[in-house]
Amino acid sequence: MSLLVSMFVITTSMYCLFLLIREYNQLVFTRFRYRYFALRDELALLVMTGHIMESSWEYQHIVRTINFHISAVETMSITDVVSLLIRYHTSEDGKRKVRYLIRRVDDPAVVSILVRYMGVTQDLLRRNSRCQIVMIRAVKRLFGPDIRQGKHEFVQNPNEAINAIEQSKSDLLATVKNDSRYPMAVA
């Protein structure tokens, strides 16, 4: 009898733990989704107030990019989202588009939205790949930083994507460094 009770308690507690982790992850993803929704709405309001044209390449590209991130967060598992975003933010095509965007965008309000979008994506990557980042750092400490040179990539490194986004953010902020309107746009 006591064995049966013990088995019941163990099974129920493990199931509860599993459900709790699942619920918590959904909550975290919902929080990221809402942050992306807010940025997209802010961008739409900029179009409505005439800061940016609806037909402009930059508006369409930014909306598409934010929608892409929302879709990823809505439809994919944590592992897939991390993997996809690392690929997206480290791809040559992605970097080229960001460079083009930086050259074209000069409105501080749009820059502010872009910087915050990049911040949300960095947070998303950091939050969902903590273990991966720690493990990679530990392995690099053990075997040296050049462990991957000339070899196949076994694990994607989220830090590469986070650093690439950080670089884009710095480049973007440099364009409005002397613009007195920028702090107003952020506020």
Partner: peptide
Amino acid sequence: QQEGYLLP
């Protein structure tokens, strides 16, 4: 979005 092909 263009990148839709990457998604399930």
